[in-house]
Design a binder for these strands. Structure first.
Length: 260
DNA sequence: ATGGCGTCACCCTGACGA
């Protein structure tokens, strides 16, 4: 049984809802993690997604952040944010998908941006990443079939950046951020995108400014990681650049993993 | 060094993103 799981930072669900619905209609997935909803839960469009065949759990807030999981399979055991890490910002939602091949634990995160190394926001990013790592470790112990998806706001390697030299040790590129990404891999997670040969200069985000997308000046910061128990069934992972070409696009493109 | 683009909130300029 083939399953697909996706992640997409939509940069305002209110603005992007028509594009999300159109993309789901053209690209049916079993589940998708959305980030940067920028709306409160009372405004979450449950009905529109239900009509499209998706049950949803959302964790939003006004103006900033906000995450949701949409699924064609029943959702259970929902966790919002990192329980051990008090946070005003809605950045994590976790649920178990009851799939025909068994339960699948899905962690969807909108990782902290961090602004600039040395800033207070960067320090918050480091604390948040450590807390997330601890949470993922515990979740993996309880749920062998687990996927961690989202906007990680980390370009793990030089090849994940359009200008690794010019941007060395700047935000998304610092050794500290990359070490946190590696620590997630060391928990037993695999970056599914790198399981396969990919086009050169594959990115998932492009700046709105300076014709970033047209010039393919981007970063690969949206990721899908899976546990050992799922790794063997992964048959593909790709970035779908098509929605980035839409009028009024999100600055991020969806990433999709296929489990055979 | 800054702004460049887009979104949101609130009152039109500023915060924030990446």
């Amino acid at each position: 049984m083939v399953m697909k799981i996706a992640t997409w930072n939509v940069n305002s669900l209110s603005v992007r809802l028509p594009q999300v619905l159109a993309w789901l209609a053209a690209n049916p997935v079993d589940a998708i993690g959305l980030q940067e909803l920028k709306l409160t839960d009372d405004k979450f469009p449950h009905d529109a997604f239900k009509e499209a065949g998706y049950e949803a759990v959302a964790f939003g807030q006004k103006t900033y952040n906000g995450v949701a999981i949409l699924s064609r399979h029943p959702l259970a055991d929902v966790v919002r944010n990192i329980p051990a890490h008090a946070d005003e910002q809605a950045r994590v939602i976790i649920a178990t998908l009851d799939t025909p091949t068994g339960p699948l634990r899905l962690i969807n995160g909108y990782f902290v941006n961090g602004q600039e190394p040395g800033s207070e926001k960067f320090a918050y990013k480091m604390r948040w990443l450590q807390a997330l790592q601890d949470l993922v470790r515990a979740e993996m112990a309880a749920h062998p079939r687990l996927a961690l998806v989202g906007d990680f706001n980390v370009a793990p390697e030089d090849r994940d950046s359009y200008d690794p030299v010019g941007l060395r040790e700047t935000i998304h590129h610092t050794t500290e951020e990359r070490n946190h990404f590696k620590a997630l891999l060391e928990l037993g997670l695999t970056d599914t995108f790198r399981m396969f040969e990919q086009p050169e200069k594959s990115y998932s985000w492009w700046d709105y400014r300076m014709l970033g997308f047209q010039k393919n000046r981007g970063l690969r910061i949206d990721h899908i990681l899976v546990s050992e128990a799922l790794r063997g069934s992964v048959t593909a992972c790709m970035v779908d650049r098509a929605p980035r070409k839409n009028p009024q696009p999100s600055d991020h493109a969806p990433v999709v993993v296929t489990l055979g």
